[in-house]
Design a protein around this nucleic acid. Structure first.
Length: 1165
RNA sequence: GGGCGCGUAGUCUAGUGGUUAUGACGUCACCCUGACACGGUGAAGGCCGCCAGUUCGAAUCUGGCCGCGCCCA
């Protein structure tokens, strides 16, 4: 299958990008200081905020109006580069192309920082300088925001008392007590003895434990939302006396800030929305509420009047065997994501839930339960046994339904199906009869896998092989004629000697050539058997001679069949694998295989026939259900002829009619399909669909019929006996896609929703189920049952074992949902687990999910707080002029790319990719960057126009992002969506966003880079210089080129605010570094380091940087010095390397200068 | 025994021939900053399993080896 090429990624072709960029270019003389006026490009609808715009209340002149002397002029052309490259149009074009290729990768989740800097690298380093104010010169902002008495108290002092007033409590614990959480008026008051204690530390410990058990414990211990009136305080005796005053206690023991109910006023006194959201997402309450709402609205009913194309899928019916595991949750979440997206796209969708009776598996479980009560299942009368199973089913079916509902899966419960309901029974019988009439079902005596514990035949797929230790015995078979010696036969199963009919050697084995045709005496018996030659014998195994026990080994059976001179011996094992029969000495009768083995070994030894024994590791077949060693057994069973059924399926997959994702499983699929064996479908158990075959007591032949026949179709006899056996569960399950839609009736649902769209499942049942469904689909409906198969990985616990109900190592999803919420579980499952690989799931994944939801929730709260009542829902993307604020253009463009990526990922059945894209976008772009930048504008400090524009941009992006997130985390998004201005009744029915609605703006994305990079640099410097957080020291940047200067100068205020510096001054290229300033070398350019007294860390990091750059430079130079490289590499690559080398040399040079300075000034200090 | 897949910071993970190797969790440091401490900022942490080969150039392609997993017999 063709992988989507790069061109499919929905990005505009390079030329257009280049043109766009070019069009955005302003004449160089427009470069101006921050806040300066802007010439209006022709056709631009509205002017940018005027230079004389109103100032924010806390704004000082120096905030915005850099000294005219510091205006950033165009640097002189660089003679080495033959002109001012950054203004060269062709160069621009190249940036566009590179940007494009970078942005492509960006879609793979790379960070913006690493994405774009290479485009900027050529501009040379930005110099950043930053100097902390000495304490006495610290600016005390007049009229600063914040409650009086706060801003003027030095930060450190403000908090110190809290740490020192309680010597008995470690600061680490106090840390978690948020002063703002205390009711107003109590800020800064140290916690008292009765105050809640943070739970974090304790929860951490639990989190370190392995998943099994650990998770459950952790879930109980971890911080969790308080359920109104719910659990008692977790620390008895520490009840919080302030509780009544805190309506939104989170129950984790931490107090929350009391939030005033009713209208909220912003700092400026404007009325904000009164529909304030609670400070924390209360998963349990919100999730239950929306699940009810969705049900009430019938949102998940498959439309009855749908016309193709529709989107439909069947839920792989879980076994009633037990409850659902997190593995099911992963699978179901993937399906839910796909379905919900389609539903939002307006496609009629149907998701059919169901339940599988899981015959043998269920019977085993019920048997086990009865055993605990002292009841032997096999001894129960049939009716009673069935009643016991039915009781089990009811109990578990309810539990499974509860689990499915709690997770918020959008299945259509009105179409629920059970594989043992009347319709399913009818369909199963029809299928059997039809296959029988078509000659594809037959009854035959063949070697089958026999489970001696459950006393039933099982299919090849139900057999598990595992390596086990055993002892290999070398047994001498004496010559029958009494001549000395004999043949040495190696075996691990001496107890089957009684069933031997021959000894076989390889025909070309020279050692035994003379033996062929002679006869040997079977040890422990007096039977004489021939020595045969057969090509199946492995001459390298043991002595090269194999004993032939046709009833007890498949290979032996095949050898036997090739030698018609042999006759079939009587059985030596009964159905419980006990020795029996005329060939077995009476001393062994009734012994199990395990008991007989040592006994036979001893006897052989006593008889002097045991030559030697050696330890041996070999593969043992065990029954999947009972774990008993499987005995090959010749038995009469019903079979389905598979090769004929498989052929059309193989064709269909080859033709691409059914696509398998990830496609690498196709090979495995084909291999199995092409060597497929007949399927043994009869089971000697109670629980299942009875085989619709009726044996005539007169002639012994079966009459096969959907309804019980009146007479034998062979002899007309009336005395008929229903076949006591039942059918393999999978004989019903393999019909599921059409069975669930009403087949064999020609129902409307079949017309509308068949073939289904996609099948999502773990690949553990690829052969059991998926392949067989394809076969039945083509055979019975003539159509593919689904167009796409999507295999996901198996969840493993933290010990790497597969999660299964069998091992009991999966937490109950219901517990997970109760403790952390369905959305947290869903995101925690999908986000870290690529569909193609096996994944893991533990408490940390859950935390990640929950934390992300909290982030989204708080974004919603933030936005809500900045929207005046009556704000219109965002009907279309805000149309931003090219002169609009950079951050708005940027976030729209980023949103657009994210939307595209999510769409693409889901269309390719890769929900993890979609989740990653959304996670990265929400956390990094939207929350960490955009919102932080936009705060100024939203507070009205950058003028009304910008405030309005920013508001509508924020609302638009957030609202559309909620829609994109909805399939992943439906509840929290539904709740937030309703709190925000919106059109429509339910988010779950709201339209899926068209990414193209929002414009891409590569120019804004490029321009944003230096801004973000500058912020990062300054913050880094602050940290290195250990400048207290509440200081806003002055800072300087020496921009690298005019382009960077232009961007930076227009965003000075933003950088100042985010980096917490003031004022930020842009220096001219040649200007000297400000005195007593610290600087750093950073990736973007070079960086200067300053020398303050504590500069060891700085010097160290400079040296590290230098080392790194030097290594890189050497590498680059080596490459450039290589003839081969110059001759063979594309010119562009060579040029890039040259530029890079120059770049590096310069940067290293600057670092050296700094190190030198630092050395001298360090000495002075 | 055969087949398939996987080895990338302590852990999980992105990365289809030119990147200063991505992100998350964890770790360390600073920080309650008017959405969010379930938080913010910054930092440290990588012979991209090993060895050959192809190539001007390999985490990426090929072969071998080692380790792990799965499927099949």
């Amino acid at each position: 299958m063709a992988r989507p090429g790069r061109g499919d990624r929905g990005l505009p072709p390079p030329r257009r990008l280049g043109v766009r960029l070019g069009a955005r270019e302003r004449p160089a003389d427009e470069h101006r200081p921050a806040g300066g006026g802007s010439a209006r490009p022709p056709g631009a609808p509205r002017p940018r905020p005027a230079p004389g715009r109103p100032r924010g209340p806390d704004e000082r002149p120096s905030d915005r109006q850099p000294d005219p002397g510091l205006r950033v002029p165009r640097p002189p052309p660089d003679p080495r580069r033959g002109g001012d490259r950054s203004l060269d149009v062709r160069d621009r074009f190249r940036v566009g192309r590179r940007l494009q290729s970078r942005l492509r990768r960006r879609d793979d989740g790379r960070s913006a920082r690493n994405l774009l800097w290479p485009c900027l690298l050529r501009h040379r380093g930005v110099r950043l300088c930053l100097r902390p104010d000495p304490p006495d010169r610290r600016p005390v902002a007049p009229g600063r925001e914040g409650p009086p008495g706060r801003a003027d108290v030095p930060h450190r002092e403000r908090h110190r008392p809290r740490h020192h007033a309680r010597p008995g409590l470690r600061p680490g614990r106090l840390r978690a007590v948020h002063p703002r959480r205390a009711p107003r008026g109590r800020r800064g008051v140290p916690p008292r003895a009765g105050d809640p204690v943070p739970a974090g530390s304790k929860a951490r410990h639990a989190r370190d434990e392995p998943l099994r058990g650990g998770l459950v414990r952790d879930l109980r211990l971890g911080p969790r939302p308080h359920r109104g009136g719910g659990p008692a305080p977790r620390f008895p005796g520490r009840a919080d006396p302030r509780k009544p005053s805190r309506p939104h206690c989170d129950g984790s023991g931490r107090s929350r800030r009391a939030r005033p109910r009713g209208p909220v006023r912003s700092r400026e006194g404007r009325l904000l929305s009164s529909a304030a959201l609670p400070p924390r997402f209360e998963a349990r309450e919100v999730e239950a509420r929306w699940q009810t709402e969705w049900d009430r609205a019938g949102a998940f009913r498959g439309p009855d009047r749908a016309r193709p194309p529709t989107f439909s899928l069947v839920l792989p019916p879980p076994n009633v065997t037990g409850v659902l595991t997190l593995g099911h949750m992963l699978s179901d979440t993937v399906m839910d994501i796909l379905v919900r997206r389609q539903r939002m796209k307006g496609v009629p969708t149907l998701w059919v839930p169901g339940l599988d009776h899981a015959g043998l598996a269920t019977q085993v479980e019920v048997r086990r339960r009865l055993q605990k009560e002292g009841v032997v299942f096999e001894e129960l009368p049939r009716e009673e046994a069935l009643r016991a199973i039915e009781a089990w089913r009811e109990e578990h079916a309810a539990r499974i339904a509860e689990q499915t509902r709690a997770a918020g899966f959008s299945v259509d419960w009105t179409r629920f199906r059970y594989t043992m309901d009347a319709e399913s029974a009818r369909a199963t019988r029809e299928v059997f009869v039809r296959l029988y009439r078509d000659g594809l079902v037959y009854r035959g005596e063949r070697m089958v896998n026999w489970d001696p514990k459950l006393k039933t035949a099982i299919s090849d797929l139900e057999v598990q092989h595992a390596e086990e230790e055993a002892t290999l015995l070398y047994v001498r078979y004496a010559w029958a004629d009494g001549s000395p010696g004999g043949l040495e036969v190696a075996t691990v199963r001496p107890e089957t000697i009684f069933g031997d009919v021959a000894v076989a050697v390889h025909p070309e084995d020279a050692r035994h050539a003379a033996a062929v045709g002679r006869e040997v005496r079977v040890p422990l018996t007096d039977r004489i058997v021939p020595v045969l030659a057969d090509p199946a014998i492995d001459p390298t195994f043991g002595g090269g001679a194999l004993k032939v026990t046709p009833r007890n080994d498949l290979v032996d059976y095949e050898v036997f069949q090739r030698h018609p001179e042999l006759s079939m011996p009587p059985d030596i094992l009964d159905d419980g694998a006990h020795l029996t029969g005329p060939w077995v000495p009476t001393a062994y009768h009734g012994l199990s295989v395990e008991e007989a083995r040592p006994k036979a070994t001893e006897a052989l030894e006593a008889a002097g026939l045991l030559v030697r024994r050696e330890p041996y590791r070999h593969s043992v077949a065990r029954s999947e259900r009972s774990e008993a060693p499987v005995e090959p057994r010749i038995s009469t069973q019903w079979f389905v002829r598979m090769p004929g059924l498989a052929a059309p399926v193989v064709d269909a997959v080859r033709r691409g009619e059914i696509r398998i994702h990830p496609s690498r499983w196709e090979r495995t699929f084909f291999r199995w399909m092409e060597s497929i064996q007949d399927w043994c479908i009869s089971r000697q158990v109670l629980w299942g669909h009875r085989i619709p075959a009726y044996f005539c007591r007169a002639c012994g032949k079966p009459t096969v019929s959907v309804d019980p026949p009146a007479r034998c179709e062979h002899c007309g006899g009336r005395d008929l006996l229903e076949d006591p056996d039942v059918l393999d569960t999978w004989f019903t399950s393999w019909l599921w896609p059409f069975l669930a839609l009403g087949w064999p009736e020609r129902t409307a649902d079949l017309d509308r929703y068949y073939p289904t769209s996609v099948l999502v499942t773990g690949r553990d049942i690829m052969f059991f189920w998926v392949a067989r469904m394809m076969m039945s689909g083509y055979y019975f409906t003539g159509q593919r049952p689904f167009s796409d198969v999507c295999f996901h990985g198996m969840l493993r616990d933290e010990e790497g074992r597969r999660m299964s109900k069998h091992l009991g190592n999966s937490p109950d999803p219901l517990d997970v949902v109760r403790e952390r919420g369905a959305d947290a579980m869903r995101f925690g499952l999908v986000f870290p687990n690529p569909t193609s690989e096996d994944g893991s799931f533990g408490p940390t994944a859950l935390d990640g999910g929950r934390n992300f939801l909290t982030k989204v929730w708080n974004l919603g709260r933030f936005a809500l707080g900045h929207l005046p009542p009556g704000t219109e829902p965002p009907r279309r993307a805000p149309s931003l002029a090219p002169t609009s604020s950079l951050e708005n253009r940027w976030i729209l463009s980023r949103y657009r790319r994210t939307a595209e990526e999510v769409d693409r990922a889901l269309a390719a059945y890769e929900p993890t990719r979609g989740a990653s894209a959304l996670h990265a976008f929400v956390r990094h772009d939207l929350a960490d960057r955009y919102v932080e930048i936009a705060k100024d504008a939203l507070a009205g400090r950058r003028g009304e126009v910008l405030e309005r524009e920013t508001r509508s941009t924020l609302l638009y992006v957030l609202e559309r992002t909620l829609r994109l997130l909805h399939p992943f985390v439906p509840h929290v998004t539904e709740e937030l969506w309703h709190a925000l201005p919106h059109d429509g009744e339910l988010l779950t029915l709201a339209p899926w966003p068209d990414p193209a609605e929002a414009p891409t703006d590569p120019g804004a994305e490029v321009a944003m880079e230096p801004v973000l990079e500058a912020v990062r640099l300054l913050r880094n410097l602050r940290a290195e210089e250990r400048i207290p957080t509440d200081l806003r020291p002055p800072a300087w940047i020496r921009p690298a080129g005019p382009e960077v200067a232009r961007v930076l100068s227009s965003e000075v205020a933003t950088i100042e605010r985010l980096a917490r510096v003031r004022p930020l001054v842009l220096l001219e290229p040649g200007a000297p570094a400000p005195p007593r300033s610290g600087s750093r070398v950073v990736p973007l350019g070079e960086c200067y380091v300053e020398r303050t007294p504590a500069s060891a860390a700085e010097t160290e990091s400079l040296e590290r940087e230098r080392e790194k750059l030097t290594r890189l430079l050497e590498k680059t130079r080596a490459r450039l010095g290589d003839r081969g490289f110059r001759d063979h590499a594309p010119a562009e690559v060579v040029r890039e390397a040259e530029e890079k080398a120059k770049e590096l040399e310069e940067r290293i040079g600057r670092i050296d200068e700094h190190l030198k300075e630092s050395g001298s000034s360090g000495a002075n200090a």
